[in-house]
Amino acid sequence: MKKASAIAILFLTLLIFWLLLNGSLAADIVIVGVVTALVIAILFRDGLAVFSEFRATPRAFLTAFLYLPYFLGELIKSNLHIARVVLTPSLPLNPAIVKVRTRLKSRMGRLILANSITLTPGTLTVELDGEWLYIHWVTAEATDIDAATAQIVAGFEKYLEVMYG
């Protein structure tokens, strides 16, 4: 049962992607899309898809909706931060690889957390090891676990906890 729903979710994601890419609903395109998406979904049923561990509750959808503007805001902030560092003649760097911990349990939640951290101010995920993440920080302000966790992880975690757990 769990496997069937995984296949169905992956199949629908792929099919929607294919239809948007083609931008038409002609019979031949739909047939090719359905067959390919089904074959891929069955072959890769153990893999991850964007929605595979998504909690389909109204609160999760609302959080996902709120997550997007928060994330885009962080992305723009991170770019302004990098721009300021690169354009300063003295190059004010204080690089460090810090260790932080996440409360998220699901694989997809951790993946999105790692991706989001990479795109936010001055941080880049280097290694994932269970609940520990190692993060390269261009202008490190704290190198102990708790302070770094509060500063890097906490903002995203409260959204992703509702969405993926």
Partner: peptide, 29 residues
């Protein structure tokens, strides 16, 4: 302009990890 900053970051940053930071963020946006 952000792509330009990414290029500038690639040239100016002192080591690989800092270059990756500039490369990833600025090229994405």
């Amino acid at each position: 302009a952000f792509l330009f900053l990414a290029g500038l970051g690639l040239v100016r940053m002192p080591d690989l990890f800092n270059r990756l930071q500039a490369g990833t963020k600025a090229t994405t946006l």
